[in-house]
Design a protein around this nucleic acid. Sequence first.
DNA 1: CTGAAAGCGCTTACAG
DNA 2: CTGAAAGCGCTTACAG
Lengths: 376, 376
Amino acid sequence: MSSVRKIAELAGVSITTVSRALNNDPAVKPQTSKKVLRVASRVGYVPSIGRRITTNIGFAYTQERTLTHPFDSAVMEGVVRGLDEHRFDLVIINVQRDKRPDESHAQFFLRKGLRGVILRTMAATRHVCCTIADSEFPHVVISEQFDAPNVNFIDGDSRHDSARAVEYLISLGHRRIAFAMHTIPDRDHLDRFEGYREALAKHQISLDEEIVFRYPFTLAGGGTVMEMLMSRGDRPTAIFLADPLLGVGAVKKAHEMGVRIPDELSVIGFDDTDMRHAVHPTLTAVCQNANQLGYEASRWLVRAVTGATTEPLRKTIPTFFEINQSTAPPPTRLRRPANRGEQAIDGTTALEQYGKTQGLGSRGVGRDANIRSARP
Amino acid sequence: MSSVRKIAELAGVSITTVSRALNNDPAVKPQTSKKVLRVASRVGYVPSIGRRITTNIGFAYTQERTLTHPFDSAVMEGVVRGLDEHRFDLVIINVQRDKRPDESHAQFFLRKGLRGVILRTMAATRHVCCTIADSEFPHVVISEQFDAPNVNFIDGDSRHDSARAVEYLISLGHRRIAFAMHTIPDRDHLDRFEGYREALAKHQISLDEEIVFRYPFTLAGGGTVMEMLMSRGDRPTAIFLADPLLGVGAVKKAHEMGVRIPDELSVIGFDDTDMRHAVHPTLTAVCQNANQLGYEASRWLVRAVTGATTEPLRKTIPTFFEINQSTAPPPTRLRRPANRGEQAIDGTTALEQYGKTQGLGSRGVGRDANIRSARP
DNA sequence: CTGAAAGCGCTTACAG
DNA sequence: CTGAAAGCGCTTACAG
């Protein structure tokens, strides 16, 4: 509903200056431009076509696009579903390609006619999200977390359940546990790494950087991880892979190499959707609902831009830990005490014991009776 | 570049009438409206914001959205990649939700400010694509084929290779071969079914509708297919699943049920991306590059709307047939003559023989030396 | 059912 | 570096 006229009024300048600021005219004094853009973002300005108003929400990456990753496609489906409720559309935009070097992000989004933007980011470009938040342009960051109070975000906290997953391996008797993550980490992968470190530290197992693998999150990447893992002299008895494609690729390669899961090697994966069920044995995994992240993000965003809410979005959705068939005690010859003063026990019994400590019967450990984490 | 003014001139009406026609004002005589809209589509009208012009291409389903299917996410990635070259953006629109009942598709797209549209459709809604083509609105249909000369499309012809795949099974000695496809078929699935029928007919094997399965294209759907298949008294020795998720889900369930692939059951899948490599054994599969379909579709479309080309798009990309480890001769007790007058032979030999008839050495049959189909 | 005219939204040459 | 004014794009009340 806000026109250049209204912004001009609020910012105390002429409509000419507003138009120039929005279009990044270098003639405008930076200070004036900044003021205008802030007002424009705040009142939710969108260039209108005649009397009509656009209903476009942007989907932007601060780094490379990863559209085909199961996480992204699930997020996008959820986003589109959330937009349905207010009849908004999703525009996939390319910031690197289209943002002019001398233009701010908010300016760029306004120029594109966007009402708001959903951001995907990685650790190295988190600061871009803060800049956007500072400009007051309506936004939600998916899958990162921020201390700055003006950044809207929604994420899944996988650290707690990652630690829990690794502790589960330790409880089964594993002491030498490998870890795999994406080459370029995002918050999620770092969280999972942090959970892994935490669990090891808690049980006085020292972290061996030699068995922390960083490969692209593809099936092939997972295959390479498995090859690297099994080629070692001091072979780990378990691995936690912090990404669905890494997990599936690793299991596939294990089959090819004749590595029996879970008899010879226990594998814990991570799942954003249902990929843990694609392989055999079904992966024990830390899971999050990526579709829900997208849905809640976009639902909040349309409500924010339509004025239906003025609350910020700062939400963390719990993940859950699901025990399936890819984990078991380590092979007997490699078994060691699980904890100080506690002898490692026969595989099935260990599994049953874990079930019992969780308040489940011995039959409760398995796919149909998932152990879901409580928040700490 | 075309304004209401120009359209008015070309259509021989006032700009008022043009505006009304574009906005679906019921006061306009249907005949006048149709004429105006045709001119608007033809000259590539887009409502402009001030002096700027939108660069949005729509992505629309004529039926339900299937965004998370590997085919769709690969297509979308390719589409976005193709748009990069001319700095266009992709808007995911929802026709069912937003198109007013009394509004034409072209009207709807124009109102949304789209320069062109990429269409995904199923067999039951093919006619919508024809209507859109008749309105002369810039479009490409992905993965269907049309006789009408004004419909632009790009598809992969999977019929030929589907027949080839089934013939390969027959050459291995299989006579009882099941088939699985999505509940609501699109052109692709029907093509694959047609290929299956063709191959059976060619070898005088009668088609048994009892072993033609129709389930949703999900992992769970594939699992159900496998359960249904194995619960039969007259168990088939092979199955061709016309969808990647059906294939992966079926293999997973086979593992769970203890069905050995390919010893007890040969499985041929279909792959749009690289999912055949996600399972063990790697699926013998008919494959197409969905990413390329998307890329070529959007690349042509932006060239068409920017006037860089005036050629129509009517392209069929060949699929290819890749032999991997999920296929072998049927179990001995079930083996029957592969063809009239030709005795079935020992498994390995049959495989080698097929390799030889294809001009490959006996080592040539396998993942690293794919048999790619020539067009007929 | 159609159009001339009024009027808002936006941008841009011109003036300061 | 900024603004008043001209002017295009579009829509809509008003007239016929």
